Simulated scan of single mutants.
Amino acid sequence: MNVALLTCAKLPYLNPEDQLLIPELAKHQIHAKAVIWDDPTINWNEFDWLIFRNTWDYFEKEQEFNLWLDQIERSGIKTLNPIAVIKQNKHKFYLRDLQQQGIAIIPTVFIDKTSNLNLSEIIPAHWKNAVIKPAFSGGAYQTTLFDVIETAYMNEEYRTIASEKELLVQEFMPEIKEFGETSFIFFNKKFSHCVNKKPMAGDFRVQVQFGGQYTAVKPTEELIQKAQQIVNTFDDQLLYARVDGIVINNELHLMEVECIEPDLYFNLSEGSQTRFVSELLELIH
Rank of each mutant, 00 (worst) to 15 (best):
L25G: 00
L25F: 14
L25E: 05
L25K: 04
A26T: 07
A26I: 09
Q29D: 11
I30V: 14
H31E: 03
H31V: 07
A32F: 07
K33F: 01
K33S: 11
A34P: 12
V35R: 00
I36S: 12
I36Q: 14
W37M: 01
W37A: 00
D38Q: 13
D38P: 06
D38N: 15
D38Y: 08
D38G: 05
D38T: 08
D39E: 09
D39V: 07
P40Y: 09
P40L: 14
I42V: 15
I42C: 04
N43A: 11
N45E: 14
N45C: 10
F47A: 00
F47S: 00
F47G: 00
D48R: 00
D48K: 01
D48S: 07
D48N: 12
D48G: 02
W49F: 15
W49S: 01
W49R: 03
W49Y: 15
L50A: 10
L50H: 04
I51F: 08
I51G: 05
I51C: 08
F52W: 12
F52I: 07
R53S: 14
R53F: 11
R53L: 14
N54E: 12
W56T: 13
W56E: 12
W56F: 08
D57W: 03
Y58S: 02
Y58T: 03
Y58P: 00
Y58F: 15
F59D: 06
F59C: 13
E60K: 10
E60P: 03
K61V: 05
K61G: 05
E62H: 11
E62L: 05
Q63W: 04
Q63N: 10
E64A: 08
E64W: 01
F65G: 05
F65C: 06
F65R: 04
N66H: 10
N66M: 13
N66W: 04
N66D: 09
L67K: 12
L69N: 03
D70I: 11
D70P: 00
D70K: 14
Q71G: 03
Q71N: 11
Q71H: 14
R74C: 03
R74F: 13
S75H: 05
S75F: 02
S75P: 02
S75R: 07
S75M: 06
K78N: 06
K78Q: 06
T79L: 02
T79M: 02
L80Q: 05
L80Y: 03
